[in-house]
Structures are given as C-alpha cells and as structure tokens.
Amino acid sequence: MTRPKKLDPSSSPRAMLGAELRHQREKAGLSQEQLGSPLFVSGSFIGQLEAGTRRMRMEYALRIDEVLKTDGYFERNCKAATKSKYPDHFAEAADAEEIAVAIQEYAALLIPGLIQTEAYARAIFRGGLPTAPEEEIDELVAARLDRTRLLANPTTPMFWSVLDEAVLRRKVGGAAVMAEALGHVSALARRHRIIVQVLPFSAGAHMALGGSLKLMTFTDAPPLAYLESLGSGQLLDDPATVGSYELAYDLVGASALSPEASLALIESAAEAFAHEQ
C-alpha cells in the first residue's frame, strides 16, 4: 500500500484531486484496498492517485463519486486535473517524472527528452510531423523544453541514461545540431548532474533490444515503467512487470561502456559532427 504523502493542494489541480481523494476516503473509513475493490484496481493504484503519480480518468472519477457519495465532485474536477500540454499517451508519464526521485532511461534511437536541446527537439518534431504548421511545432518544442527544468535542481531527480550507440550516430537535424546536442549531454555529465553510458553496437543482442525504456522511482509510491512506441505509450505499475524491466535495464547497463569511456565516445562523436560542419 502506498504510504501517505503530504500534498500541497494548491500546487496543481492533480494535487488538489489527490488530496481530496485521500480526505474523502479516510472520512468514509475506507482503506486504499477497500476503495480500490469496487473500482477493480489495487490499493496501490488508489495510493498512486492520492500521491499524484497517476492521473485520474473519468471512469474512476464517476465510480469514486458513487462509492464515496461525493455528489459529483471528482467528475466535475477530473477534466481540469487531467488537462495536459503533452500528448495523451505521455501525459501521465510526464506527471510522474515531476515527482520522481530517480529516472533511469534506456534510449534506443534518440537523446532522451529531459536532456535534449531546443534545436534537436525541433528537428525531431519536424521530422515526425512534416506538414504541421510552425505554431504546432513551437508548442511541442516549448513543452519538451519545459520538462528539462526538472534537471535545474542540482540533485533531484537522479537521472541515469544508457544511450544506444545509434543515438550518437543518427544525424538528427544535421551536423551542427548533433554537435550541440551531444555537447549538451557531455556538459551535464561533466557537471555530475546526470549519469550517462553508451551501449556500443559491439554489445550485440540484449534484453531491451525491442525499444526504449523508462523507469521511475518515488519516495512514497511503487516504481513505474514507461514504454513508448509510435504514437502510443504504456505506463506500467504491476510489480512483477516493473521488476522484469528493472532487470532488463540493469543488464543493459552492465553491457554498456563505463561512464568515463561513454563520455569519451560522446565527445568524440560531437567533435566529429563539429568538424563536419
């Protein structure tokens, strides 16, 4: 069961909804498991709603109002609490990132969003949406750069990424964009703000060969795994499933170059792109 967490209800609609859910549940004398049962979810899931690591969907809001007899409170407030500047498939994962104490990410093809530069992000979005108006691309880039503010805190969250060597070789946006993007990753690593490793092509097959993987851990909630594919994503909290992805990440990290050797390879790739200009 998720342990209670002191939320600031004024910090966001989602925090407000989570705090009110805890208040109404305790007022009704129900445990997290007892409230979860009629919703067909676990007590841990209810705890994640209360802690703000999961977003409340309308179907849950309607059932909660019914069980707790809250006169439509959660239905009325659910829309405001679930508004997001991120695509639907990623919105919940973005919320979880904001309160995670540690984020581990295996990146198979692209530099992770939290450590991208503006030019690199713009090249990604333009490549994926070749006919979108510039205003739409601007909004997507702004939202992605807003996520990078998480690393403005000098220590939290701890961010550790394993980059497949393909990330270093794929020329996103051209040589100048890649030189800047890899230089940014290198600078973060040299400031000891992030841990970065490179999984070389020579490592061969591995457990995460099927795609990218993000793991998030929290002070007072179970860990989550996030898997993303073209236009879709899955946020997973089943302990056995998350455990299997944690093992996959550990084994990928064990096969990767050391942080020191990885940094040398990243800077070598950045220098090669810079010379190519």
Rank of each mutant, 00 (worst) to 15 (best):
E180I: 06
A175P: 08
E134L: 04
F201L: 09
E97L: 01
G204N: 05
I195P: 04
V141N: 03
R169D: 11
Y226C: 07
S31A: 12
E260K: 12
A51D: 11
P133S: 06
K85V: 10
A176R: 13
S11H: 00
T131D: 10
A102P: 00
A51N: 11
S31H: 11
L21H: 15
K6H: 13
R57A: 02
Q24R: 13
E276K: 05
A270V: 05
V242E: 00
A80I: 06
A274E: 15
L263M: 11
I115H: 00
R191M: 14
R54N: 11
I46P: 02
G36E: 00
A270R: 06
F201R: 00
A240H: 14
A28F: 15
P38T: 03
E228S: 05
F40K: 08
M58R: 14
M178F: 11
L151K: 12
T156D: 04
I64L: 11
A121I: 05
L227Q: 09
L227S: 09
Y226M: 00
Y245K: 04
L182S: 05
A15F: 08
Q48E: 07
A254L: 05
Y60A: 04
M207C: 00
L7E: 06
L35V: 01
S229Q: 09
G231T: 15
V167Y: 13
D88A: 15
G231C: 10
L151M: 13
R147I: 12
Q48R: 12
E260D: 12
K79W: 02
G233H: 03
F74T: 02
L140W: 10
T148Y: 07
Y106F: 15
Y73C: 00
L224E: 13
A94M: 14
G43Q: 01
I194H: 08
G231R: 13
Y226A: 04
E98I: 10
G211V: 15
A166P: 09
D8W: 15
A254F: 00
P13I: 02
A208E: 06
L62S: 12
E75P: 07
A100M: 03
E228Q: 12
A91V: 08
Y226H: 12
I194M: 10
S186V: 07
I195R: 02
A175K: 10
T131H: 07
S202H: 05
A152V: 04
A272K: 10
E97F: 06
G231W: 14
G43K: 02
S262E: 08
L21M: 15
E20I: 03
Q234W: 07
P130E: 10
R55L: 14
T241M: 01
H23Q: 11
Y106W: 12
L182Y: 05
S84E: 09
Q277H: 13
S232C: 04
Y245T: 04
R144P: 06
L110S: 06
D238K: 08
P222D: 07
P239T: 06
